[in-house]
Design a protein around this nucleic acid. Structure first.
Lengths: 226, 226
DNA sequence: TAGATTGTTAATCGATTAACAATC
DNA sequence: TAGATTGTTAATCGATTAACAATC
């Protein structure tokens, strides 16, 4: 894709959803200001890092007070583009696809879910959270008539690449991928892998590390071949 | 928690699930070996970084051949502790909780889902993917009689801290959290936040950045206050 | 005023890359 | 042998932290 001139460093991008979440939760507190030190407690990032991250985008703080919670939240919303409306469709109305249809996170981030597609005739015409599931054979026609920004992919792995190719051919520019297979897309398509089992992986690894530390053993790994 | 002596750097941990996923997918190819260069193509990490990451754990490669796919996959499984059996419960049988009940990723990672809890009487006794939903009032009794390693938390945000406190009191050491509220847990508890909407956040930000770059505008952010 | 806390600089720390000897 | 590719070193690059002047 070629980095843009003013591209936000990935490492900062990865912390923005965390700031967003905590500031959103702080809205419902009675506090007006939050300090970088308090945000450090909440997020686990150092206060110094938080101040530096925020200063990348502008000057939001007030010396000796901290950051106006409401105001900073609004700014983060603008930085993340949540004030722009985006249309979303879900491809694959299995259990995960259906659960995503009930996800409450869209509106606050500027997304609107407008349709769900599946190929299973038993699911077609079923209404999930006020959205009717339609046949994936309608996909191209639907995309011609509706400006869709993001497609969530919750189809079985075996179908993922074919559907992706169709989405790309129909002009979709961003894919939110829940399948666990590697997808090939042109360079100008935004592809976000949502590794649903990532947390389970990390927990397993951490529990394993703890076990190894307690046992005092050091696993000697090698492939046994020269 | 205090870092362990031989703690694997977080940045390497974060790439392990990606290696795992691609090596798993490579199992079903006809290839026997994969080079760091090929893995670089698949993952987007540089080949140099991949060789360095893997060398952190041992010597797995074979000069001029690359890495034995099956063997390396097995090693990654061992590193992540997937060869150890872990028991999992789900708290909250809403749409997301139910979708997690159908998740196919447990077994290959050494997890076994053994129960689902909810407080809604309409859901109790319902069978989801062969697992019976039981009343959350049974939680403590159940945990006394069953060694549970990880609890997945898919309850509404408002109930999250209370349930967490009960889980911790009952001896749970690892929580896979899907709620979007900050949870307080003792230092010795592993807590993994699974930010389900993270991908949507990043896509929104990237689309917004692209728009800004095309417009040539630079948003001037500031809180309007001195 | 005294205390608090930002925004920013310079110093430090750690992660990534480039390069290449070793060797299959 | 010539070509391929690892494992590892040293160099580079970038991210984080510590510190503090500015100031509310």
């Amino acid at each position: 894709m070629g980095k843009e001139l003013n591209a936000i460093p990935d490492i900062i991008i990865s912390r923005l959803p965390v700031y967003y979440q905590h500031l959103k939760n702080l809205q419902s507190s009675s506090k007006e200001y939050v300090s970088s030190e308090e945000l450090a407690d909440l997020t686990g990032f150092s206060s110094s890092l938080i101040r530096k991250d925020l200063s990348y985008f502008g000057t939001f703080g007030r010396k000796s007070y901290g950051y106006d919670i409401y105001c900073l939240f609004q700014q983060i919303n603008i930085i993340m583009g949540f004030n722009y409306k985006k249309k979303l469709i879900i491809i694959g109305a299995g259990h995960l696809g259906q659960a995503l249809a009930y996800n409450k996170g869209y509106n606050e981030r500027g997304y609107q879910l407008i349709s769900i597609f599946d190929k299973n005739p038993k699911l077609i015409d079923l209404v999930i959270n006020d959205i009717e599931i339609q046949s994936v054979s309608n996909l191209e026609r639907f995309l011609e008539n509706n400006k869709v920004d993001v497609a969530a992919l919750t189809v079985p792995g075996a179908a993922a690449q074919k559907i992706t190719d169709r989405l790309v051919a129909a002009g979709i520019k961003a894919i939110w991928d829940f399948t666990e297979v590697p997808l090939k897309v042109p360079e100008d398509i935004f592809l976000e892998e949502q590794l649903i089992n990532e947390g389970l992986c990390k927990l397993s690894l951490k529990m394993n590390q703890k076990r190894l530390n307690q046992d005092g053993t050091t696993e000697d790994l090698s492939c046994g071949q020269k």
